[in-house]
């Protein structure tokens, strides 16, 4: 993944370096601007077993701020916001790799440095007994639950 570019950022930003499980790192630029979750929409994406995005719907593109061509083939961690604790994603991967469904509140990072909160569900795509990838569906979260998640995640970081 490329570092984020200041030319893409809307508003004042802070720079942070995110370190991923695979040892890679990325410079991300974050602002305090929240994009409200659109009413009635579902954000849907699919990844391969390594977490690289293979499909995404229009709502995913609109909310992420990226073009589809910038998303397909990229790791899902493209959307990772530095306020999200690594332990949350560790739990996600452990759960889905065990063949189970994962739910959680997630703060996602946009291309423009802003963010949006979602209630995410991730399930393994199982065909003939084999996991061939993962489907993630995000929906509008309760504000109360988001506030609780903010507190929880702040204590985990």
């Amino acid at each position: 993944m490329h570092d984020m570019s200041p030319s893409d950022i809307q508003g004042d930003y802070q720079e942070t370096t995110l370190k991923y499980f695979d040892g890679n790192q990325r410079k991300v630029l974050v602002t305090d601007i929240e994009t409200p979750y659109p009413e009635g929409k579902l954000i849907v994406s699919r990844t391969d077993t390594k977490g690289n995005i293979t499909h995404c719907n229009r709502s995913f593109i609109d909310m992420s701020g990226y073009e589809e061509s910038e998303i397909i083939g990229q790791p899902h961690a493209l959307l990772r916001h530095p306020d999200m604790p690594a332990a949350a994603f560790e739990d996600l991967w452990k759960t889905v790799q065990a063949g189970d469904k994962w739910h959680g509140y997630v703060k996602n990072l946009r291309k423009d440095g802003g963010y949006y909160w979602v209630y995410a569900t991730v399930i393994p795509n199982i065909r003939k007994g084999q996991v061939i990838g993962y489907t993630s569906v995000r929906r509008k979260p309760s504000r109360q639950k988001v506030e609780e998640a903010i507190t929880t995640y702040a204590n985990m970081n």
Binding site: L42, H55, T121, N125, T135
Partner: peptide
Amino acid sequence: MEFMIDLIEAL
């Protein structure tokens, strides 16, 4: 069809 079912099951 399988992916639509995955989506329904996720929800």
